[in-house]
Design a binder for these strands. Sequence first.
DNA 1: TTGTAGGCGTTATCAG
DNA 2: CTGATAACGCCTACAA
Lengths: 346, 346
Amino acid sequence: MEAGRRGKQKAAPTLHDVARQAGVSVATASRALNGSSTRTVRPEYISRVVAAAERLGYQPHLSAQAIALGSTPTAALVVSDIDDPYFSSIASGVIVAAQAHALIPTVAVADRSPARELQIVRTLRGQRPRVIIVAGSRIDGAGTDTTLDDELQAYQAVGGRVVMVSQESLRFPTVAIDNAGGGRQLASALVSRGYRRFAVLSAARKIRTSRDRCDGFLAGLREAGMPEPLVVETRFTRDGGYEATRRLLDGGPPTVDAIVTVNDVMAIGAMTAIRDAGFTPGRDVGVAGFDDISWCADLDPALTTVAIPLHQVGVMAMELALGDDPQQPVIRVPTSVILRDSTPSR
Amino acid sequence: MEAGRRGKQKAAPTLHDVARQAGVSVATASRALNGSSTRTVRPEYISRVVAAAERLGYQPHLSAQAIALGSTPTAALVVSDIDDPYFSSIASGVIVAAQAHALIPTVAVADRSPARELQIVRTLRGQRPRVIIVAGSRIDGAGTDTTLDDELQAYQAVGGRVVMVSQESLRFPTVAIDNAGGGRQLASALVSRGYRRFAVLSAARKIRTSRDRCDGFLAGLREAGMPEPLVVETRFTRDGGYEATRRLLDGGPPTVDAIVTVNDVMAIGAMTAIRDAGFTPGRDVGVAGFDDISWCADLDPALTTVAIPLHQVGVMAMELALGDDPQQPVIRVPTSVILRDSTPSR
DNA sequence: TTGTAGGCGTTATCAG
DNA sequence: CTGATAACGCCTACAA
């Protein structure tokens, strides 16, 4: 009896308790509460059972249901960092979509570590969720890649649904973001506005998203007949953008027309760095990013960016996962350039 | 091989499979993998079991464990909106803390609806998580309040740990944010900088967080001997801040020295509205908010705000929940004013 | 329509 | 140290 510290610790009421209170068998109680598809229960009993359940504050033990039925009514999402607007927007989409399908959303944070990501997916498998959506930034050559793939494959093999976001994979349905295309469009748009000399702030090349955006932009520049820009590698964060820009401006006035960063938070850091160096973003140097996170338009100057419908991406990932047999296992999400005052015509 | 539509659906390997492969009993396999506290297993068997598990890609069925052990290694967090930096910062804290304690974090989004929140907590109870942290903005007089309380109480009665964030409750441990104190300090700081006439943009009075901040600010003003400011009620969002400010500035140049909003995202909207009306935030009107979300310092002018260690709040909530018998059931989190260029001395 | 019994995967107990 | 076996809470044939 003595459960220790926590004292009397009445156990949570079970279906048995409800059944007893209502004076029926567990089977009937179960059917009364869940409405069996084949059997039907006398109305009077139903109300009696429901009343008993109410009175006892009964909640079915999901794990018990899960074990009886095979899987948990759960949808798991893996992201790199929930406090990053890129991921929190995707997450919000996944979460509402999950809830719309009566699935309990679960969020794991891999903290940008492939090893952690692998460990998470392993643990997740034990949860037996109906869906696993992986939105972390794929990192090439981390060694853990095939292992992660295997793990997901094993999960899929027993009926789980896997969806990757952004990081296209041959083996799983994917919501693919056209990062390269976005980069290309951005290059062309900026060139039309009269920009010629660029600095590109990218993250480590092994980060796929960054590389695709960067390469797309370079390709666009080439297509427009522009010379190769300066490419600076830094971290994929606000601080990375800040520091790289500081260094760029160390020698004096900007030697480039515009700084293009591979995401918006880097661009925000870059704008601050430009100001701290005594210049004005937009006027002295153009600035552009990727993602179109919430307050791009509230910055001063408002930030030019490659828009990605992140919330929608989350929703689509969920729909793709739940769709019956995706004939079209890859959804390509188009991107679009939004020109704002951080890159005025010049 | 053909996994077909839903086809052969090999079931996931169970502990039985592992045991059979290793040529031991399930009991031994279980002990070998989880290291029972009382029994110990021959090393040779251990390695054999581990090898078999590896080979089969075995993952323990968490629901089965849960049902055998009583609860899930899970920590649930309820927020209003994960895409709001206030909540995503708290969430990031909760999530890392949960993972540090080997708990699987689960996030539910109540979408600012008390009814939804209640429904979520009910569902959550069925999950049998070890912890439920409620961080949604408490709304007074929604009618669902006592019901929510009851639901949480029932959960607590069977050994669950409940922690509330911000919304102080007599019945549950709370991480209380000193919103009123922050408002008071902000008033005093702004008055010292020479501000006299204020407009306060608050959200609906029934939203506790907003009301406390607003009232604290008013109290601070009174203590400083200032006249009552203009109080405008609007939505608790960026757009709410924008619209209210637009209206305020409709008649021409600002009639107040500063606009104080009850959170940063409203302040961001306000700054844009000020610009759109042809004025300059900071120079023509001061602007200040609450929270100190990530890019307050990257705005131009940088935003004066009442800082709240949101990530830390999340971590503390988790620690509070897991602490052995909290003698001190309420942790008060102090707030501090950060003066920046959006409120220069005048 | 209702109840009984067996099983889901794991852990804990209790004999060997 | 190891192996049966009984729970754990629920669902679902199957029998009544």
